[in-house]
Simulated assay, not measured.
Amino acid sequence: MLSRRHFLVTALAAPLAPRRLWAASTLTSGSWQLDTLSDGNLMLPGDFVLGGMPEAEMREIVARYGLATDQLTPPCNVTLLRDGTNTVLFDVGAGPDFQSSAGKLAESLEALGVAPEEITHVLFTHGHPDHLWGLLDEFDEPVFANAEYAIGQAEFDYWTDPETVDSIGEARTTFAVGAARRLAVIADSVRKLSDGEEVLPGIAARLTPGHTPGHMSFELAAPSPVMVLGDAIGNHHIGFERPDWASNSDQDKDLAAKTRSALLDRLAAEQMILIGYHLPGGGIGRAEKAGSGYRYVADL
């Protein structure tokens, strides 16, 4: 049996500091509890996602969702799983060094009453800043000191390859430098995953490449199966309605479109619960077939 609830948590960062209102979603399934916690949001130029798409149709789709095309502010949803034995984070947010609007995971965890030392495992979907840069504290030590870490083998190899910084493109040079520095700290202990590998009981790694070369999603075999998508489906509008369109946010645009389309086919056919890192309302929902594309349905 599956149930879901939304809640708002008001957290005070310091006495007399402005109050921050955190939105979170909780999904319970059997002995599992999944929380999606806000790491804040990104501030992206519209072209970073929408550039190169068929202009008239793209604008019509985006307008129907009440969004502008010059700037996008997608939320960042970090997933926390507690199963009675393990306390697992899927990605660690942006930390303080990427964008001032992001990097709020520590406050969200505190508001939920979860201490960093309680995290037993961290599973990375990929190495982009908003997913990885929250790994280290100000002393370059892992924030989640007691956790075991895992990332896709191909993803680890890509970001730790010295040649990546020269091949990734000028707009993403800092991504490569930042990922290499952070992964170097855990290089000797991080577990490298292959497609289909069972990471923990009931959690399987699924290679979903294109956004990055070794992007992983994670399939949870809870009583009701759940797919933690990371950025394999990066938004709730174009990504669902026209998954076949190339997006500038993806490093291999054509491969990402194929991955996205195949994922949506499966998610819609099986009515599997999905959790998207940049999807609205906490990111928990389903995909439904709608005409030649799909529709994101947030209410379960």
Results as ranks from 00 to 15, higher is better:
A111W: 02
I275K: 01
T160L: 03
E198I: 06
F90C: 03
F240C: 02
L112T: 03
Y149R: 08
A14P: 07
E270R: 11
V88R: 04
V88K: 03
T120S: 14
T164Q: 09
R286A: 12
E141F: 07
L34D: 02
D39V: 02
A102V: 06
S167N: 11
H131E: 11
T174H: 14
E148P: 01
M1A: 13
F240R: 02
M1H: 13
L16Q: 13
H215D: 07
L81D: 03
D35K: 01
I273K: 06
T173K: 15
M1T: 12
G113D: 10
L16C: 05
A257G: 10
P209K: 12
A221E: 15
L267W: 06
L263R: 01
T120M: 02
P209A: 14
A222W: 15
G239R: 04
T26I: 10
P243H: 01
K289Y: 04
N248D: 01
D130T: 14
D244M: 03
D157H: 10
S101W: 07
N146W: 00
D244I: 00
R206L: 14
Y296G: 04
E148R: 15
I284W: 00
F156N: 12
E55K: 13
V143Y: 11
E117Q: 15
I273D: 05
V92C: 14
F90I: 04
P209G: 11
L132W: 05
E288D: 15
R59H: 13
M216R: 09
P75S: 10
I119L: 08
V165H: 05
P209V: 13
V199N: 01
E138S: 14
P213I: 05
L27Q: 05
S292V: 03
H126V: 04
E219Q: 12
G93A: 05
H236G: 03
E118T: 12
F98R: 02
P96N: 06
R206N: 08
D265Y: 04
